[in-house]
């Protein structure tokens, strides 16, 4: 992680704006990628045929990443779809697509959102001003404002795990084996093989975002904005409150 950058903000933030001039303006951030190993291009293939809608991924992500209450970096949208009189259950795990052409990137006025050279789109929470512009620009509702850090938040592909040689939390714990993570630059990887052989689809291809989360068995009804009876899910009455009864913090 770019600690120097963070320290810079720490030091300078409290001081006057003038101090900012000392910082090297991340002018390159506008387009250039940084961090990560360009040898890799991380991607996920979601085989929805294997998803059982158990939400293990959803909760694992929360636990792994200390996602605040009532917020989600990933969720498995679950639908009942009826076609030709036949009803069936449809699951659709959703997360940030780590788009190759990510619309959340150019809109960011501070460069806090950037793409690593391995394709992972991340937010530097020491730089982000929480303007929410990227949240608007993402066509997938993959981003939100984290009420604890007061900055933009989203799936990081668990960079801290991936960089440690591990798998993302949601992939590790996927009960159905629906989430498959790997390196598209490695032709021998499972994701490469699946992308080659299974002709997977992406969500909202019309947006031109070129996602790096692919879906096998994606229901065309669910590819874009879903039309139907909305869920009765409601954010808690106290959306900003932490866990209702403050948990022990040992």
């Amino acid at each position: 992680m770019d600690r120097s950058r963070r320290n810079f903000c720490l030091g300078a933030g409290a001081a006057a704006v003038g101090a900012a001039a000392l910082a090297a303006p991340p002018a390159d951030a506008a387009a250039a990628r940084k961090g990560g190993d360009p040898a890799n291009r991380w991607a996920m293939v979601v085989d929805v045929r294997k998803c059982v809608g158990c939400q293990a991924c959803t909760v694992a992500c929360i636990m792994e990443n200390a996602v605040p209450a009532n917020s989600f970096r990933t969720i498995v949208s679950t639908y009942e779809v009826t076609e030709g009189g036949r009803a069936g259950t449809a699951m659709l795990p959703r997360l940030c697509n780590h788009c190759e052409d990510a619309p959340c990137l150019p809109v960011c006025p501070t460069g806090a959102t950037f793409q690593r050279r391995d394709g992972i789109v991340v937010v530097d929470n020491t730089v982000c001003v929480g303007c929410g512009y990227c949240v608007q620009a993402c066509p997938y509702d993959a981003r939100f404002i984290n009420h604890e850090t007061r900055t933009a938040d989203k799936c990081t592909f668990c960079v801290h795990r991936v960089d440690a040689g591990l798998l993302p939390a949601c992939v590790e714990t996927c009960v159905g084996g629906a989430r498959i993570f790997g390196d598209l630059n490695d032709p021998g990887s499972t994701v490469s093989r699946l992308v080659r052989t299974q002709a997977p689809k992406v969500l909202k291809p019309g947006q031109g975002t070129d996602p790096r989360v692919f879906y096998i068995g994606l229901d065309p009804n669910l590819e874009g904005k879903v039309e139907g009876t909305p869920t009765l899910w409601r954010p808690s009455a106290r959306p900003h409150a932490h866990a209702p009864a403050a948990k022990e913090h040992a």
Binding site: S77, T78, E80, V81, T82, V226, G228, P230, W233
Partner: peptide, 10 residues
């Protein structure tokens, strides 16, 4: 009711 969202995020 042909597509009913059972679980989704807000």
């Amino acid at each position: 009711t042909n597509i009913v969202e059972v679980i989704n995020v807000t």
